[in-house]
Design a protein around this nucleic acid. Structure first.
Length: 256
DNA sequence: ATGGTAGCCTTGCTA
């Protein structure tokens, strides 16, 4: 079972690239973030032509997440528990066979010191509480998405320049580590120890061409999912295309 | 030389 995650930075602007990725990579489940469109405007028909199903939550202009899958989603959860007043479309979770998969778009949190940073940290604490609940089931699950956290300085092209950034602040990193301390695994690091492997490159200043990026898109796996993992990697192909998203997909393969 | 890019029901905000 192949599970991929990709922040597409507008699903409408990226539809040709999205369809090409589905056809080439053939993931069983693809988690999308920053779709930037209402659920009823999600390009479901084009995706269904490739034999995929789609579930989406969205809002105008910002945020929005989706699950694109070969088999239909079951037991769909359309928000992260813990804050019923939170109307930002950042979390979607469903069951596909024996594996539960979430597509999440964690708040960016910049600028530090504002309510945006406080919202990010609170959102991470809600995610921690929810992960703890899911772990009690002792079943395979994958929390996939744009975490907007560089776990260590090895995940940043210029750690000094990002020291004060919400993606690298100690408060963000400690909450990310708290997810690992629960027993979740950073799937990429199960297979790759080398530093400076990125999933995001800023559009500005030629960052892509100089490979100056950040590793902020992650697949966090429950122990029962890690027991099945056979591969995980970053697919840099889509980032190199014309009119690319600023993120590229990360994927893992779980044995049946 | 305080810039640069991309997307959005755009003229400012988010990333």
């Amino acid at each position: 079972m192949k599970i991929a995650s990709w922040n597409v930075n507008s699903v409408k602007a990226r539809l040709p690239h999205l369809l090409a990725f589905l056809a080439a990579a053939e993931p069983d489940v693809l988690c999308l973030q920053e779709t930037k469109c209402l659920a009823e405007e999600f390009p479901t028909a084009a995706i269904e032509k490739l034999g995929y199903h789609a579930e989406a939550v969205g809002q105008r202009s910002y945020n929005g997440v989706a699950l694109v899958s070969k088999r239909p989603a079951e037991a769909v959860r359309r928000s992260l528990p813990g804050a019923p007043e939170d109307d930002q479309a950042r979390y979607l979770e469903a069951v596909f066979g024996e594996v539960r998969v979430a597509s999440l778009y964690l708040p960016n949190g910049n600028p530090v010191g504002t309510d945006k940073f406080a919202y990010k940290l609170a959102w991470m604490e809600r995610l921690h509480a929810h992960a703890r609940t899911l772990l009690r089931e002792e079943s395979p699950f994958v929390l996939a998405g744009d975490y907007n956290v560089c776990p260590t300085d090895e995940d940043v092209y210029d750690p000094a320049a990002f020291r004060g950034d919400a993606l690298c602040r100690p408060e963000s990193r400690s909450r990310f580590r708290a997810l690992l301390y629960l027993g979740l695994f950073d799937a990429f690091r199960v297979f790759h120890r080398e530093p400076h492997r990125y999933t995001y490159w800023d559009y500005k200043e030629g960052r892509w061409h100089r490979d100056e990026g950040l590793r902020i898109d992650h697949l966090l796996l429950s122990p029962q999912a890690v027991d099945r993992i056979v591969a995980c990697d970053i697919d840099k192909g889509p980032r190199g295309k014309e009119r690319a998203s600023d993120h590229t997909p990360i994927w893992c393969e779980l044995a049946a």
